[in-house]
Design a protein around this nucleic acid. Structure first.
Length: 460
RNA sequence: UCCCCAGUAGCUCAGUCGGCAGAGCAAGUGGCUGUUAACCACUGGGUCCGCGGUUCAAGUCCGUGCUGGGGAGCCA
């Protein structure tokens, strides 16, 4: 008999004889002559209630089953006589696949997220984490669907990159050298002896590679792991995370904003439509305002405001901020929160930042002072998207690089794209985990990624 | 990396002024004919985070280290 998944069985409209299901026991309630066993197989949030009568063979053994044990149940799917569920399985036979000893750390009660993080290998067996990772899977698929529907090509940019990246944070070095390290005459490590013959690192962004493909295939995107060796200890940072980076040829900053806003709204809509059961768990137990928050985001136009005007609002507000700000400084968390949570009460897009606080590749505006950058900020999370129109003019780009202390030689291939058939183009990066936090209301990024990597923590 | 808070049973926590180590849940045993985090009864369960100090006496006070959480910076 072919195994059926619980998600499939629960969709039925009529009883079914002779079904087989397999899963893990979440809880068991015994009476004298029969037992109720709740089985979950991971296919959906809901358990299947199994009714086991004492006349079944091996009932003595079945009574010993514990939370966490694995079973194969054959029987018939019938309307439930109890109130909590529509269907239940009347067991004809239960095969015990394995028994979890009483040391099984998950109990049939609520655990804290902090405790579950210490057993990250078992937490997907809980309702909440099962739901998170089903939603994560569905949304990953929706990302590809969104871009494919719009004619974007999916590019696999390298995970290992050459040394001189765009200076976005600390890098994880990739090496096959072992101590004692070979040294050159300057007393530095001699990377010419290393695997690639040069210093190499894990990528902090696929952007520069993606630009090359945007200037070939038109509209492209990457969606892959990204690594930052920053010693960040916050609920919004991990050392390994997944980033979505579209890059579009013949696209200006306004088009870039349009795509970012559409992507966020589309993915939220998708989650609401496709993951209703799982999402409902978060609306009930994690964030009571979740439904309203998500509806507000998809129904409102993101407010677009130049950096200068945002500063004016902050300077003119009666709010007392811990950090002073002025034209030319970057916004602090408290400023972002004030704007999105108190002033506008919806997502905003801040654009045209001073060139002094943004990287070399962002396009210089006609005022000579600002660049065509745009950040999409959302309530509670802060920066969800950071992007820009890219500098397509070779001479301007070279000047910006030199000004930023970067060597033109190591970016020869990047500059080539501006030498041969250069065109205006734009793109952005969206932190996938931060999007998941927004959609589920989960407040710690470590709880929306299977095995989080943070400073001092590489378990699992 | 900086600031703040916490660490007591398997889990979540209480522990008063420094004076016998506690509860709920879980687990184990028994009971119960439709349960819903089932229920009822009984039983077992402790390196009070580690190290050092003060004291007749430290879970409690002091110092220090470790771990976790919240916030900040950096950013997605």
């Amino acid at each position: 008999m072919k195994r059926k998944k619980i998600a499939e069985l629960l969709k039925t409209t009529a009883p079914i004889d002779n079904i087989l299901l397999k899963g893990w026991i979440r809880t068991k309630r015994d009476s004298k002559n029969f037992s109720f066993i709740e089985v979950n197989d991971g296919s959906c949030l809901k358990n299947m209630q199994i009714v086991v009568d004492e006349i079944i063979s091996d009932y003595v053994e079945i009574k010993k089953l514990t939370t966490g044990s694995a079973v194969a149940v054959s029987g018939s799917l019938v309307p439930s006589q109890g109130g909590g569920q529509q269907w239940e399985v009347r067991a004809a036979k239960i095969d015990i696949i394995s028994i979890a000893p009483e040391t099984f750390p998950l109990q049939k009660k609520r655990h804290t997220d902090e405790y579950l993080r210490t057993i990250a290998h078992l937490r997907p067996r809980t309702n909440k984490y099962g739901a998170i990772f089903r939603i994560r899977s569905e949304l990953s698929w929706a990302v590809h669907q969104f871009f494919r529907d719009r004619g974007f090509r999916y590019i696999h940019t390298p995970v290992i990159t050459g040394s001189d990246c765009e200076g976005a944070g600390e890098l994880f070095r990739v090496t096959t050298l072992n101590p004692p390290m070979p040294m050159n005459s300057n007393g530095k490590i001699d990377f010419s002896k290393d695997f690639f013959g040069a210093e190499s690192n894990l990528t902090v962004s696929g952007q520069l590679s993606a630009e090359m493909f945007a200037l070939s295939l038109g509209d492209v995107y990457t969606f892959g792991p990204t690594f930052r060796a920053e010693n960040s200890n916050t609920s919004r940072h991990v050392a390994e995370f997944w980033m979505i980076e579209p890059e579009m040829a013949f696209c200006d900053l306004a088009g870039n904003m349009d795509l970012g806003e559409a992507l966020i709204k589309n993915l939220i809509r998708f989650a609401i439509d496709t993951c209703a059961d799982d999402l409902n768990l978060f609306a009930r137990f994690v964030d009571k305002t979740l439904e309203k928050t998500l509806e507000n985001i998809i129904s409102s136009d993101f407010f677009r405001i130049p950096y200068k005007d945002a500063i004016d609002i902050l300077l003119g507000s009666k709010e007392s901020f811990e950090f002073n700000l002025s034209y030319g400084t970057d916004l602090q968390s408290e400023h972002e929160r004030y704007l999105t949570e108190k002033y506008f009460k919806k997502p905003i897009i801040i654009y045209d930042y001073p060139k002094t606080i943004k990287p070399f590749y962002m396009r210089l505006n006609d005022d000579g002072e600002t660049v065509g950058a745009m950040d999409i900020l959302v309530p509670r999370i802060g920066e969800l998207i950071g992007g820009s129109q890219r500098e397509e003019r070779l001479d301007v780009l070279e000047k910006r690089m030199v000004g930023g202390g970067l060597s033109k030689e190591s970016y020869w291939w990047y500059l080539d794209s501006r030498r041969y058939g250069t065109v205006p183009h734009s793109g952005f990066g969206l932190g996938f985990e931060r999007l998941l936090m927004l959609i589920t209301g989960v407040s710690n990024i470590r709880d929306v990624i299977p095995f989080p990597r943070t400073p001092g923590n590489i378990d699992f």
